[in-house]
Amino acid sequence: MDLRPSVVLITLLLFLLVGCNKLPQGRSDQLKTGPNLLSEADTIKLAKEQAKLLTVDKVEMDTAGPIYRVVFGLDANNVRKVIWVSDHIEYQENLDKGISREDAMKIARERGFDNNTGIQLVYIPQKAKQIASLRNSPSNIFWWVRTPDAEITHQLFLNFYYGTVVYEWEKK
């Protein structure tokens, strides 16, 4: 049988090409699940470089939907800013455009929350809103007030800009 080198080479190449696309699935050793976050130090660096923050007051976590680090700080124009960061800046807003944390807590206390209540300023992109009332809200930024344990018994979403109650749920 006359097997020319070029035929053998082409056959081998074809075999490799097809074979590489048919690798079996089932790998799970190093697969990870979880948010795509920068370290806190890199988050601050990014906020300073890209959002032009001069000082950073604090960094918190936003765990209401997609997980973000939330940077609070002051920019060169003396504007108080809040920035949501994953592995890049997801969103930013002037803090003074909405109600303050203290005002949000005041509303929460009027609705039965105590001083142990957890509060986060959260950004939930429209496509990640799984609660109908949030989906129908034009705002993507909320004060999320909730009981502290993972098994929430009472929670409140307030429209950041107006302080209106968008969603409240209490375990009966």
């Binding site: 799970s28 697969l31 990870k32 979880g34 976050l37 997980i67």
Partner: peptide
């Protein structure tokens, strides 16, 4: 062994 960013190796 969930890391500080909240990631966990599935295995």
């Amino acid at each position: 062994g969930t890391d500080r960013n909240g990631n966990t190796i599935t295995s």
